[in-house]
């Protein structure tokens, strides 16, 4: 059995905290950072539950500011254990 494991990298200083990516992620990976702002004074998002990411890129596609890079790797389920 193989499965998709994903990971995202958020450019936090480019992020404006619009939270559209949070809504677009069906795996609940992304959340707004709690009580933190970036260099521009915007709230920003972080991958709070990174292990749930499947690398589908939905978050990155809807991000108006192009802040998210998405990586995906197919792995064997057994290797996970």
């Amino acid at each position: 059995m193989s499965t998709n494991r994903g990971a995202i990298v958020v450019d936090k200083d480019r992020c404006k905290g619009c939270a559209l990516c949070v809504l677009a992620c069906s795996k609940g990976v992304i959340s707004l950072a709690v009580r933190k702002v970036n260099v521009h004074g915007y709230p920003y998002v972080e991958p709070m539950n990174p292990d749930n990411c499947i690398g589908c890129a939905s978050c990155a596609i809807v991000c108006p500011d192009g802040c998210i890079e998405v990586y995906r790797k197919i792995i064997d389920k057994e290797d996970e254990q």
Binding site: G6, D13, R14, K16, G17, C18, A19, L20, H40, Y42, G55, A57, A60, I61, P64, D65, G66, C67, I68, E69, V70, Y71, R72, K73
Partner: peptide
């Protein structure tokens, strides 16, 4: 393993649009 990133033609200048704007 990269599957998505900001297009090359879009430079790193922060865009002035409001958060979440369709532009």
């Amino acid at each position: 393993n990269l599957v998505y990133k900001k297009p090359e033609l879009m430079n790193d200048t922060p865009m002035h649009y409001c958060p979440g704007c369709s532009h």
